[in-house]
Design a protein around this nucleic acid. Structure first.
Lengths: 253, 253
DNA sequence: ACAAAAGTGTTAACCGTACACCCATGA
DNA sequence: TCATGGGTGTACGGTTAACACTTTTGT
C-alpha cells in the first residue's frame, strides 16, 4: 500500500522533480555461465518487460541520472556507463496509455507526454549485482541475450542498438574489467569476446593478441575444480587497462 | 521590425510549439579551398557566435528537427547528418541570461529553463550552400576549422567533439560524397582526409587504398586550368558508396 | 585409458609504409 | 626551361590468420 502510494505520487507529481519530455533507458549487461545477460524489469500493471529507466532531475547532470538509475537497480557504484544514442521518434511510445494503465492519469499528465529517451549501456559484474525492482515494477531479473522477450515501446530496438554499439567499441577499447570477476581465465575472457561479437575466435591468436595489449597479469594460481586441465588465472592491470581505455587501441577480430 | 516581433514571439511563446528542455545543435562541415569549414551564427543581442541550433516541435522526430534546422540554415535537402552525442550538464548554459539579454523574459520563460542538447554533425557541399541567419541572429557564415572564435556556452566543446567523432568515423566509413562536388580529383579527396585527420598521408598509398575500396569511378576527363599537370576527375559510385556506408569498411590511416 | 579442455609456436598471406622517377602544364 | 604538382610500382617489415601436437584432469 505504501509502495502503491509512492508509485502513484511518482506518476502524478513527477513533474515537480523531473525534467519533462526526457528519459533515460539503460541496457545493463552482465556475463554469467558463458552467456551475456541483460537486466530487465517487469511492469506492475501490464506485466510487460522493459529496460530499466528513469528521468532526469531538474538540476542533475544527464550522466548522473543514468548513474543513479543504475545504482537503484543494481546496488552498484562505479559501473562502466556509456551513452550510445538518443531515440527521438514521436511515435516510440504510442501505446503508452495501454501500458501505464493507471487511474488518475489524464492526457495532460507529465508522464503521458511524449518522451525522448537517451540510451546508455552499462557493463557490470554479474555476481555483485542484486537486482532490485523499482516503484513501478514487480520484478527485476537477468535475461539471456539470446532469449529476450518482447519489450515495451522500442526497447527491443534500443537493446539491439546498444549491443551493436558495444560490439563496435571492441575494436577500439578493451572490455572485461567491468564484466568479469577480479580473477578470470583466458577461456572465460575469450568466451566474453565471442559472445559479444557472436563469432568464434582462434584460441591461440586470441591469447597472443590479448597478452600483447599488455593489460593482463597472469597469476601463479590456476583455476581448479574444472573437469579438465586447470587454466591459469589472470587479472587486469588496472592502470594499464585505464590507459588503454583512454587512448584506445587496435584490437580487430 | 517585423523580424523583431517574430523573434520576440519565438522567445516568449516557443513552448506552444516546441518541447521544453530539449534542443538540437548542429556542427555543419563544409570543405572549400582545401580547408575544412564550419557554419556559425552571430547572435543578435550580444554579437557572440554560436552553432546553428533549434528546438524539437511537439510532434516531430528528433532527426527531423535536425534536418529542418539544417535546411533553414543552408537551403539544402538530403544532407548527411549524424547524431553524435547528447550534452546534459545542467551548468552548460550558465550564462544564458547575459546571452539572451531580451526584455520580457522572466526566469520562468521556457527558454530560460535548462536545456539538454542533442549534437548532430552534417556534411554538406560547400558550393551549394547559401548561409542564412535565423530569426535570432544577424549573420551566418563559414569559419575555417582552425580559426574558430570563442563560442557561447559549451559550443566550442560540442564542435571539438563533433570533429573527433567525424575523425573516428573515417576508419569505418568513407567520407567525401557529401562534402565534395560531384566530380573531384584524387588530390582534392586526399586533402579532405588530411584536413579531417590533421595529418599528412602519402600520395601513392592514399590513392592505392582509396581505389581498392571500389567506390570510385575514374572519368575520362581531366581537370584543366590548374597550373600543372591535369589530374583525373573521379566521382563516387553511389550504390557502392552507400553499401560501404551501411556495411562499414576498414580504412585505417 | 579416454575424452575434453588448456598450453604453446611456426608459417604463409596480407596489409601498411616507405620510397623515386617520369610526365604534363603554365609561367 | 624550369618549377610545381600529378601519375605510377616495388620492396621491406610487421601484423594477422591458419594450423597441430602435447599436457593435464576428472571420469
Amino acid at each position: 500500500m505504501e509502495r502503491d502510494k509512492e508509485s502513484k505520487d511518482f506518476l502524478l507529481k513527477g513533474d515537480q522533480t523531473y525534467l519533462s519530455h526526457i528519459s533515460v533507458d539503460s541496457v545493463i549487461f552482465g556475463f554469467h555461465e558463458d552467456q551475456l545477460k541483460v537486466l530487465l524489469l517487469k511492469w506492475k500493471g501490464s506485466g510487460q518487460w522493459c529496460l530499466p529507466g528513469g528521468f532526469v532531475m531538474k538540476d542533475e547532470h544527464l550522466d548522473d541520472s543514468a548513474i543513479r538509475i543504475l545504482k537503484e537497480r543494481t546496488n552498484m557504484e562505479s559501473i562502466y556507463l556509456k551513452q550510445f544514442q538518443v531515440f527521438g521518434d514521436p511515435q516510440r511510445e504510442r501505446k503508452k496509455n495501454e501500458f501505464l494503465n493507471l487511474q488518475g492519469l489524464t492526457k495532460n499528465s507529465w508522464i503521458m507526454q511524449r518522451f525522448i529517451t537517451v540510451g546508455y549501456y552499462a557493463l557490470v559484474e554479474f555476481s555483485k549485482v542484486t537486482p532490485e525492482p523499482d516503484v513501478l515494477s514487480v520484478e527485476c531479473k537477468w535475461w539471456d541475450i539470446h532469449k529476450i522477450p518482447k519489450l515495451i515501446y522500442d526497447h527491443n530496438s534500443i537493446l539491439a542498438t546498444a549491443l551493436d554499439s558495444l560490439r563496435r567499441s571492441l575494436n577500439d577499447y578493451p572490455v572485461g574489467y567491468n564484466l568479469l570477476p577480479e580473477k578470470f581465465t583466458m577461456p572465460e575472457l575469450q568466451t566474453l569476446y565471442e559472445t559479444i561479437l557472436d563469432k568464434a575466435i582462434d584460441r591461440r591468436n586470441f591469447q597472443k593478441k590479448m597478452l600483447a595489449l599488455g593489460i593482463l597479469e597472469r597469476l601463479k594460481e590456476r583455476k581448479t575444480g574444472g573437469a579438465h586441465k586447470a587454466p591459469f588465472l589472470y587479472r587486469f592491470d588496472k592502470k594499464k587497462y585505464e590507459k588503454a581505455m583512454k587512448q584506445g587501441l587496435k584490437f580487430g577480430f
